[in-house]
Design a binder for these strands. Structure first.
Lengths: 141, 141
DNA sequence: GCCTCAAATAATAATAATTCTTATTACTGA
DNA sequence: TCAGTAATAAGAATTATTATTATTTGAGGC
């Protein structure tokens, strides 16, 4: 087989690399705008459209995932291994590691629904550590 | 009988009732636009803003939930009892009933992360029955 | 039956996120 | 060097959602 076509995609690109690196290093599950603001300093001629474009590419290539939409903005994660997230009412998205994925659930759901299930994720709701502390300090609970 | 203050809120509103009824009857987890198109026939002077406004109210009042954003559009569900959903790549959202919520998970996640967890949901990915059939008929597995 | 008040509504303007378009630039292979 | 291709920036266009404003509706008191 001819991997010329392979070589043809996803080569050279300073900005692509910077966007991917920023995504991989971030723990905050950033939005496109978030990454744009982060990189604008070191890459002043970066455009928001380029960030959107590359984030879409990463997702298609399996280099990243979308963890959901918060306040209208899509949030991304460079950690593609299966793990869970908590969505805080303040807008923060927090990794929840250590919750195993029960593959039996997919089989069960498939039988129950007649759907073809390729996987699942667990979405937690509540308060991130900061908001939890703030609430406790102000007398709640 | 006189419970004036009760009567004072959420009384009269043909449109509110129609929107709520459409949401409760729908199994497709409609978007605001979806409901608007549905009701426009019987209520020609319904406005999209009214649909958005009432869907927000329902969510605040606990009469409905948001199940997520698909292709930029928020999708709602009048079934507020805990249950799971499958998100198909075609945009369909399918109820997955019969998957119990494991409350132990919330406690475990809380201990693991330092977050305050108020609940969780399971989000399945895959193909809805229609897309599954289509795929099988066209030869793929 | 009229009047007043408050809430619901429609229409539309405004806003915000995302996608699309176009021209330009940079790299690659011949 | 040159042609071809992909990446890019900038901004226009699109789309979903929210905010604003004036109007309408219905309830209750007179």
């Amino acid at each position: 087989m001819d991997n010329g076509s392979e070589r043809a995609r996803a080569r050279r690109s300073v900005k692509r690399d910077a966007i991917l690196k920023a995504l991989l290093q971030s723990k905050s599950h950033p939005s496109a705008e978030h990454i744009y603001n982060l990189l604008k300093q070191e890459l002043p001629d970066l455009s928001l459209g380029t960030v959107y474009r590359n984030l879409s590419l990463f997702r298609e290539e399996g280099l990243s995932i979308s963890v959901g939409v918060v306040k209208g903005q899509e949030r991304f994660d460079g950690n593609v291994s299966p793990h869970s997230h908590l969505f805080c009412s303040c807008g923060a998205v927090v990794d929840i590691d250590g919750i195993g994925i029960d593959e039996e659930l997919d089989i069960k759901a498939s039988l129950l629904s007649g759907c073809e299930i390729t996987g699942h994720e667990i979405v937690f709701h509540g308060l991130c550590p900061e908001c939890k502390n703030k609430k406790e300090r102000s007398g709640g609970n």
